[in-house]
């Protein structure tokens, strides 16, 4: 418990917050990685997932990819990219994107699949074009699940970004590996605590966003069921 106290002191020491290697800068770097990776992964995975969900084509492949990806060891991907692409942002970022794509892809198509097929059929029969069916029916109704997928992906990237310091990336992982190397347990533990806080904060943020994305008409339906 003494160690926890020292770690806390390390976290609160103002001198550890200053400069480009300070906690503030490292946290921003960590969040920046996460944001960039999510944007890139979304640009790739959301259109593909929506296409799979809308047309029902390629579903088998999408299921297999997102399922098999769960078995992919993050550290393996990080070190592999580090070795292949060398120092710089490209290696860790590629690893983050590779690991974030499957959950976003799965959530994008699962969101569409969860929409009642009768509702989609009726919308089409009323004369909505395919684009209107997509944007006015499937996207709003599938959004909460998609945000759930972004949430998993964000947590995945936060965790992987910590590991990526092992291959030379920045972010809060630096403290963990530096502490490990110099036997500075307070720094190692303090850095870990900050990553944990960051992950929980992000998790709660996405949870709130997911709740807010549930359309009102669907929310009242669920309350009705609960009664």
């Amino acid at each position: 418990m003494n160690q926890l106290w020292e770690a806390l002191l390390w976290c609160l020491d103002p001198s550890n917050w200053q400069g480009p290697a300070g906690i503030g800068a490292r946290s921003l770097e960590h969040l920046g990685y996460t944001a960039l990776a999510l944007v890139i992964a979304s640009v790739i995975a959301v259109p593909v997932g929506w296409w799979v969900g809308h047309t029902g084509r390629g579903r088998g492949v999408a299921v297999a990819v997102s399922g098999a990806a769960r078995a992919l060891p993050t550290l393996g991907v990080v070190t592999l990219m580090g070795l292949m692409l060398g120092i710089g942002l490209a290696a860790p970022m590629t690893a983050f994107v590779v690991l974030a794509v499957p959950s976003i892809l799965a959530a994008a198509y699962a969101g569409f699949e969860a929409v009642d097929r009768q509702v989609v059929d009726a919308a089409r029969a009323q004369g909505l074009t395919e684009a209107q069916v997509l944007w006015r029916v499937e996207v709003p109704l599938g959004l909460p699940l998609l945000i759930g997928g972004l949430r998993s992906a964000a947590l995945q990237v936060i965790a992987t970004a910590t590991l990526a310091a092992y291959v030379g990336a920045g972010g809060l992982g630096r403290y963990l590996f530096l502490g490990l190397k110099t036997q500075d347990y307070a720094m190692m533990l303090g850095g870990s605590l900050i990553v944990v806080l960051l992950a929980i904060a992000l998790d709660l943020l996405f949870a709130a966003a997911g709740r807010a994305a549930v359309p009102r008409g669907v929310r009242v339906a669920r309350q009705g069921q609960a009664q």
Partner: peptide, 8 residues
């Protein structure tokens, strides 16, 4: 049959 109304 099941109205197919848009729930949102």
């Amino acid at each position: 049959q099941n109205s197919g109304l848009l729930p949102h």
